[in-house]
Measured scan of single mutants.
Amino acid sequence: THFTSQQLQELEATFQRNHYPDMSTREEIAVWTNLTEARVRVWFKNRRAKWR
């Protein structure tokens, strides 16, 4: 999946605040970024792996 810079900005900003967002937070992010909750969940999983 290719993310727009706007989507990445929103995802990264949320990641800085919370590395493990809950389901409702992921659903909110999905609405803001026009992505599915599953895409958001996978992005956070991959981002945490990169962060370690």
Results as ranks from 00 to 15, higher is better:
35 L>V: 07
47 R>K: 05
6 Q>V: 10
18 N>H: 06
43 W>H: 00
20 Y>A: 04
47 R>G: 03
32 W>C: 14
42 V>T: 12
1 T>W: 14
2 H>M: 11
44 F>R: 00
44 F>M: 04
14 T>F: 15
42 V>Y: 11
32 W>G: 11
24 S>N: 11
11 L>Q: 00
7 Q>C: 06
27 E>R: 14
52 R>A: 09
1 T>N: 11
41 R>L: 07
28 E>C: 14
50 K>Q: 13
10 E>R: 15
42 V>A: 14
41 R>Q: 07
15 F>L: 02
2 H>V: 10
19 H>C: 08
5 S>V: 12
43 W>I: 01
27 E>V: 13
49 A>H: 08
36 T>W: 04
11 L>T: 00
28 E>G: 06
30 A>H: 02
37 E>I: 06
8 L>Q: 07
31 V>K: 15
41 R>P: 00
42 V>C: 15
49 A>E: 10
21 P>E: 02
11 L>W: 02
47 R>Q: 04
3 F>I: 11
51 W>M: 12
49 A>Y: 07
14 T>N: 15
46 N>V: 11
8 L>E: 10
26 R>C: 06
4 T>R: 04
38 A>T: 09
10 E>Q: 15
18 N>L: 06
35 L>K: 05
24 S>Y: 10
38 A>M: 13
36 T>M: 03
47 R>I: 02
15 F>D: 01
18 N>I: 10
15 F>E: 01
29 I>P: 00
35 L>A: 08
28 E>Q: 14
30 A>E: 02
52 R>W: 10
50 K>E: 13
39 R>F: 12
48 R>I: 06
16 Q>N: 08
45 K>C: 12
50 K>T: 09
46 N>R: 13
17 R>W: 09
29 I>V: 06
17 R>D: 08
11 L>R: 00
14 T>E: 14
52 R>C: 11
16 Q>P: 03
38 A>S: 11
35 L>T: 13
33 T>D: 01
24 S>D: 08
12 E>S: 01
33 T>V: 11
8 L>W: 11
49 A>S: 08
50 K>H: 09
10 E>G: 07
51 W>K: 06
9 Q>G: 06
28 E>W: 13
9 Q>W: 11
38 A>N: 10
16 Q>M: 10
21 P>Q: 01
42 V>R: 14
45 K>Y: 10
16 Q>Y: 08
31 V>Q: 13
3 F>Y: 11
19 H>W: 06
1 T>K: 13
43 W>V: 00
46 N>K: 13
28 E>H: 10
16 Q>C: 09
49 A>M: 10
2 H>Q: 11
48 R>N: 04
48 R>G: 01
33 T>M: 14
39 R>L: 15
25 T>I: 08
24 S>L: 11
21 P>N: 01
38 A>R: 10
52 R>S: 07
51 W>P: 05
11 L>I: 02
39 R>I: 15
41 R>E: 07
3 F>E: 03
22 D>S: 09
25 T>E: 14
46 N>E: 13
36 T>Q: 04
1 T>I: 11
12 E>M: 04
2 H>G: 13
19 H>M: 13
18 N>A: 04
43 W>T: 00
34 N>L: 06
28 E>A: 14
26 R>Y: 09
3 F>N: 03
3 F>A: 03
47 R>T: 02
8 L>T: 06
37 E>K: 03
27 E>S: 10
13 A>M: 11
21 P>R: 01
20 Y>E: 02
47 R>C: 05
3 F>Q: 02
41 R>G: 05
8 L>A: 06
13 A>I: 10
16 Q>K: 09
11 L>N: 01
46 N>Q: 13
49 A>N: 08
17 R>T: 09
45 K>G: 05
52 R>F: 11
48 R>S: 02
16 Q>R: 11
41 R>V: 04
25 T>N: 05
10 E>S: 13
48 R>F: 04
12 E>Q: 02
18 N>K: 04
8 L>M: 07
12 E>D: 03
43 W>R: 02
2 H>L: 10
50 K>W: 08
9 Q>V: 10
40 V>I: 08
46 N>H: 12
44 F>K: 00
31 V>A: 14
7 Q>S: 03
14 T>I: 15
42 V>H: 11
51 W>A: 09
29 I>Q: 00
29 I>R: 01
25 T>Y: 07
2 H>Y: 12
25 T>C: 14
1 T>V: 12
51 W>T: 07
17 R>K: 13
10 E>K: 15
51 W>V: 07
49 A>R: 14
11 L>K: 00
34 N>Y: 05
43 W>C: 02
31 V>N: 13
21 P>W: 05
50 K>P: 03
29 I>D: 02
26 R>I: 14
33 T>N: 07
14 T>R: 15
45 K>L: 08
4 T>N: 07
34 N>C: 08
22 D>N: 10
46 N>L: 12
7 Q>D: 02
23 M>A: 10
33 T>E: 02
40 V>H: 00
13 A>N: 09
19 H>Q: 11
37 E>P: 07
35 L>R: 02
27 E>Y: 12
12 E>A: 02
49 A>W: 08
35 L>F: 02
24 S>E: 12
6 Q>H: 11
32 W>Y: 13
2 H>N: 09
20 Y>W: 13
15 F>I: 00
18 N>R: 03
30 A>N: 02
5 S>E: 13
39 R>K: 14
23 M>F: 14
23 M>R: 15
13 A>P: 01
29 I>L: 12
4 T>I: 03
50 K>V: 10
14 T>H: 15
33 T>W: 08
20 Y>H: 07
11 L>Y: 01
48 R>A: 04
46 N>F: 12
39 R>C: 14
11 L>H: 01
47 R>Y: 02
30 A>I: 03
9 Q>S: 10
4 T>C: 06
8 L>C: 09
3 F>T: 04
14 T>M: 15
38 A>E: 13
42 V>K: 14
42 V>D: 14
38 A>Q: 11
52 R>D: 07
24 S>F: 09
39 R>D: 15
22 D>G: 06
25 T>M: 13
21 P>H: 01
49 A>F: 07
22 D>K: 06
26 R>P: 02
39 R>A: 15
23 M>S: 07
32 W>T: 15
45 K>D: 06
22 D>V: 05
20 Y>F: 11
34 N>G: 15
6 Q>Y: 13
14 T>V: 15
1 T>R: 12
13 A>S: 10
36 T>V: 04
32 W>V: 15
28 E>I: 11
13 A>Y: 10
2 H>I: 09
28 E>K: 14
35 L>E: 03
48 R>E: 03
30 A>F: 03
13 A>Q: 09
40 V>R: 00
13 A>V: 08
42 V>N: 12
1 T>C: 15
45 K>S: 08
47 R>H: 03
34 N>R: 07
6 Q>A: 12
38 A>V: 11
40 V>K: 00
52 R>L: 13
37 E>R: 03
44 F>I: 01
37 E>F: 03
26 R>F: 07
21 P>S: 02
31 V>T: 11
27 E>H: 12
15 F>V: 01
6 Q>S: 10
43 W>P: 00
5 S>T: 12
33 T>P: 02
47 R>V: 02
3 F>M: 10
39 R>W: 11
17 R>C: 14
9 Q>I: 12
18 N>S: 05
41 R>M: 06
49 A>V: 08
52 R>Y: 10
34 N>K: 09
45 K>F: 09
10 E>Y: 15
4 T>Y: 05
27 E>C: 14
25 T>H: 06
